[in-house]
Write a protein that binds this DNA or RNA. Structure first.
Lengths: 240, 240
DNA sequence: GAGTGGTCTAGACCACTAG
DNA sequence: TAGTGGTCTAGACCACTCC
């Protein structure tokens, strides 16, 4: 009792692989060494390496391609995008999304943001405010807060010129890959400013979504707060 | 190209195990045969049975207990309840929930419900309307629709006298275990009736949650529509 | 001590990809 | 044809539970 701390070999291998992922030794989209190579590198059997990779694949940190190899997961793939943007249209297929940058500035962490991201109040931050437009329809108004030290060279033009998900930009330009996130949802009434941007009346019911995103080893590195107009879109959730 | 349909041995074993679960040969909470027994029963190695059970465990259909055995998952366990009721209080631990039955009746399936549950419009249904009260606070107002043929003997008193989740009642009394569910969320304004029951003003923003629940083999067997008051509670979502 | 799930190995063979 | 991941086996041993 107390601390047995029995750690099977495959979990130790997994920890080594995770460390290589975290340190950026293998970049997103690249292949990692073959199971046989890793087995001889770590002096274990191929089956043990396999089990370690099984868990990484189950957590969507890598993906396998039979006959080709095992690759570091990336936010570039289509499939991944809808794991993080959970809005779907009431009918039809999801169309193109346009991202309009409203504001980009550096600021100090409030007590609230600091607590969420395990920083100190007053630490340097980057704040991005933007509107997501589906077709012609403004649907999401959101604020994104990032640690300033991690995203030192990030600029307004880099954000506004980037095509695709922000997470794609973060991983290709800053080596920070968002691995999972937790969201808290509430219903809220639109205020004056939000209503104008989303094209609704003040008081209109909106979905208020708060997100903390994590990189490897459960380190929180992003905080978002969004207002979703759900008149023609809904938020998907799966209970398993 | 076309239909390779290569099915590994362990998936065939998994299908056999699933059939036993579906048919109710092993009841929720009970142990299934040991890996060795299953291996000799199906004439395969223990490792192959193991891999089949691995997948069932990953899908939360069974759970393992080292030294004891493998058991059919159940909605009786505490841990499971919060997989399906995703409301958490803004601060503090979740308290007791009281379920007040408002209405119980048999009705015919509307076109909408029929489509969701893969039935025909006009098929017999059971409809349950109820209020979930957290402490003293009415938080959820919901309607539950079930196929009348599957839940033939279900009565208002059975529902109102049952303690714990409905899914618990369904699996113990009717042998129907809900395995997973999909939800669609929107923000909505409270109408007169809903506002009165939830103790808010008409027009107050609420979370509108629509759920389809599935039993084994992705068969839909329940449709719900709920209004959640999110003033002091929020809906948890995990993005992985 | 007997029985369960959990780990690890070594080797054979299959399915898929690419040069 | 060579190299990758994927499957399957057989056997040994470890960790845990219960009697």
């Amino acid at each position: 009792m107390g601390s047995p701390t029995f750690s099977p070999l495959y979990r130790q291998i997994k920890a080594l692989l995770l460390e290589s992922l975290r340190s950026g030794a293998w970049r997103p989209g690249e292949a990692i060494p073959s199971e046989m190579d890793l087995a001889s590198l770590y002096k274990v059997s191929q089956g043990t390496v396999r089990k370690a990779i099984d868990e990484l694949a189950a957590e969507n940190l890598v993906y396998r391609r039979q006959g080709k190899g095992t690759f570091v997961a990336t936010h570039g793939e289509r499939q991944v995008r809808f794991r993080f943007l959970r809005l779907a249209p009431d009918s039809g297929e999801p169309g193109a999304v346009e991202r309009r940058l409203l504001e980009f500035r550096r600021a100090r962490a409030s007590a609230e943001v600091a607590r969420m991201l395990e920083l100190k109040a007053g630490d340097p931050m980057v704040m991005i405010r933007r509107l997501l437009v589906f077709g012609e329809d403004p649907v999401v108004l959101e604020e994104v807060w990032l640690p300033g030290t991690l995203f030192k060279g990030l600029t307004a033009s880099a954000v506004s010129e980037h095509r695709g998900a922000l997470y794609n930009l973060f991983e290709t330009q800053f080596g920070t890959r968002m691995v999972r996130a937790e969201e808290k949802l509430k219903a809220a009434a639109a205020d004056e400013a939000g209503a104008a941007l989303l094209g609704v009346e003040p008081g209109h019911p909106l979905l208020a979504v708060e997100r903390v995103s994590y990189t490897y080893s459960d380190k929180p590195v992003e905080w978002r707060r969004g207002l979703y107009k759900t008149d023609h879109y809904f938020y998907r959730s799966e209970l398993g």
